[in-house]
Amino acid sequence: MSKARIVFCDFDGTITVNDNIVAIMKHFDPPGWEPIVEKILDKSISIRQGVGAMFALLPTSRKEEIVDYAITNAVIRDGFREFVDYCQANDIQLLITSGGIDFFIYPLLKPFPIPTEHIYSNGSSFEGSTIQILWPNPCDEHCATDCGMCKTSIIRSYDSEHYEKIIIGDSITDFEGAKLVDTIFARSHLVDMCKQLDYPYYAFETFFDIIKQLEADPVV
């Protein structure tokens, strides 16, 4: 019996052309955000700690301005609409697994027929004086990375005996998940990481590249 295909697709820098969190930080430029990014990249703090700390630098009084900028600044990568349609037409389950934030992910994905329960991201609260990030998808007992939005926990929840697992991503947040899947579609930092550990991957620039490769590969 063939396995069902399931896709775990990143959002920032993957579905969108740019990393939306970095774009927000660069635009509003709160003092102290750049050293936090460096600490995330050199792994001296966790992704959850870093993202939470960066958004805590932004006042909730600027909520409307921040949300509007995040939505209007984002550019959807070529071929994504066609990829969503391709998944539907071919009974491929598409999950959005993102370390991004709900206040920009949900509005940007609204034009696409993706069920809300298939979108995994971090949450946010604007109740206090600064933005608080919420973590509804924490690490399970098998992950000690303190991801915030734990992609590996979601991937592990699907039985490998029944699912052919595919990841699409671009960065450090996708690397642990890439170790658990059958097929990796990578760009940017994720390509470098795959090369370092000699992981097989398919490079992509648009979602048309991914569609073409999936059509070429028979279902396991």
Rank of each mutant, 00 (worst) to 15 (best):
residue 21 I to A: 13
residue 150 C to Y: 05
residue 62 R to E: 12
residue 1 M to V: 07
residue 105 I to H: 06
residue 126 F to V: 08
residue 108 L to V: 05
residue 7 V to F: 05
residue 204 F to L: 04
residue 220 V to D: 10
residue 50 G to H: 03
residue 115 P to R: 12
residue 178 A to N: 05
residue 129 S to F: 07
residue 191 V to I: 15
residue 77 R to I: 02
residue 38 E to P: 00
residue 54 M to S: 04
residue 133 I to Y: 07
residue 198 D to G: 09
residue 218 P to K: 13
residue 163 Y to H: 14
residue 13 G to P: 00
residue 46 S to E: 09
residue 26 K to C: 03
residue 63 K to N: 06
residue 119 I to M: 08
residue 116 T to A: 14
residue 31 P to W: 03
residue 12 D to I: 08
residue 55 F to W: 12
residue 127 E to F: 04
residue 21 I to E: 13
residue 7 V to G: 02
residue 25 M to C: 10
residue 160 S to Y: 02
residue 135 W to I: 02
residue 80 F to W: 10
residue 48 R to C: 09
residue 181 V to D: 11
residue 196 Q to C: 01
residue 168 I to D: 09
residue 159 D to I: 06
residue 217 D to Y: 07
residue 30 P to K: 03
residue 12 D to F: 03
residue 194 C to M: 06
residue 220 V to W: 03
residue 137 N to C: 02
residue 150 C to Q: 08
residue 77 R to M: 05
residue 48 R to E: 15
residue 52 G to C: 04
residue 114 I to H: 11
residue 183 T to Y: 09
residue 172 I to F: 12
residue 156 R to A: 08
residue 212 K to V: 03
residue 47 I to M: 15
residue 153 S to Y: 03
residue 136 P to E: 01
residue 60 T to M: 09
residue 156 R to W: 02
residue 15 I to W: 12
residue 136 P to S: 02
residue 188 S to F: 00
residue 159 D to R: 05
